[in-house]
């Protein structure tokens, strides 16, 4: 085992936090208590977790519609996230953004939007800021396999390569672009191959193995911090839930997308279960310790939810607030 118990525990706790926050939304969505579109990260936790643990607080990340995990792994306040998903006044975006617009600039969570590929150029701009200021920050741009259909990805990669920007392009290939399986949007599944022709170092990593994600992410972060960027990583993973909301898009149901046997296979490859096995077999943890950790996270998230739900919705009289920043002069 190459990592200390402390590192393993932190990686595990972050993954479990993300999982429980996501799963805590399922019932309220079904009951209509949460109304904004929510894209659950369940099944992909290892990617945000391994990358988040490799970055410093000052580093920047930009995300997409499925970004609760990115926000949490980068240190965003969980109570504020939950409040935002419920569109409350004390949410991280003050109830103006909902699940698809969460932000925590003080933790480097700089922008999350649901326009596919919409933040890739913004992230490239953030990396340009860092290059101009020579502040040694690294930016991570999170997007999915669906974004590989957008021209702005290639424009951004070309520019980042040309200017040697400190940015990691992270493609979370979960095999589905909303309702379309990957074979209906591309002629091959090897997404990482798009970066090489633009002069960008690229690799494919098992996105359900948090230790592997962490190990490779540290190398990529170091590579960019030393001025060798950009870097491209394709993480192979699987969207355990549906595209949006609690509908799991199982074949034979209303949305009729994913085959049951495929879902079952990937559930056996669940990143959290995988990590638990590693912790027990190689990390010196007991099953009891792990179950206690889980319990404490569940209690913590329940507590955060209680606090978040005490916040009211924003008052109607504030409907025009935040249109413009009020300049000082």
């Amino acid at each position: 085992m190459i990592y200390s118990k402390e590192i393993l525990e932190n990686l595990y706790l972050t993954m479990v936090k993300i999982r429980y926050v996501e799963e805590s939304f399922i019932e309220p969505i079904a009951k209509g208590l949460i109304r904004c579109p929510v894209h659950l990260y369940t099944g992909q936790e290892a990617i945000a977790t391994g990358l988040g643990a490799s970055l410093s607080k000052e580093d920047y990340i930009f995300g997409n519609h499925r970004s609760h995990g990115h926000y949490i792994a980068k240190g965003g306040d969980i109570t504020e996230l939950i409040a935002e998903v419920y569109c409350r006044k004390d949410g991280c975006s003050r109830g103006r953004g909902g699940s698809m617009h969460i932000i925590s600039p003080e933790n480097g969570v700089m922008g999350i939007v649901p326009i596919v590929a919409g933040t890739i150029s913004l992230a490239t701009g953030a990396a340009l800021s860092s290059k101009i200021r020579n502040d040694k920050r690294v930016t991570v741009s999170f997007f999915g396999d669906g974004a590989t259909g957008e021209g702005v990805l290639y424009e951004s990669m070309n520019f980042a390569s040309l200017k040697k920007l400190p940015i990691i392009f992270v493609c979370e290939n979960n095999l589905y672009s909303t309702h379309l399986p990957i074979d209906e949007i591309r002629t091959n599944r090897r997404i990482y191959e798009i970066a090489g022709p633009l002069g960008i170092k690229a690799e494919r990593v098992n996105g359900n193995d948090v230790i592997e994600v962490y190990r490779k992410a540290q190398l990529a972060v170091e590579y960019c911090r030393e001025g060798n960027g950009p870097y491209f990583i394709e993480y192979l993973t699987y969207r355990q839930r549906g595209h949006v909301g609690p509908d799991d898009n199982v074949q034979g149901t209303h949305t009729d997308i994913r085959p049951k046997n495929e879902i079952e296979e990937w559930l056996l490859n669940d990143p959290i279960i995988k990590m638990e096995n590693i912790m027990i077999k190689e990390g010196g943890f007991t099953e009891y310790e792990i179950s206690e950790m889980k319990k404490s996270i569940v209690n913590e998230i329940n507590h955060f939810t209680d606090i978040a739900l005490k916040s009211p919705k924003p008052p109607a009289e504030d409907s025009k607030m935040y249109l413009f920043y009020e300049n000082e002069n």
């Binding site: 103006r96 953004g97 935040y322």
Partner: peptide
């Protein structure tokens, strides 16, 4: 600025 609740 609006959709991020004035945070950015």
């Amino acid at each position: 600025h609006f959709m991020n609740g004035g945070k950015s």
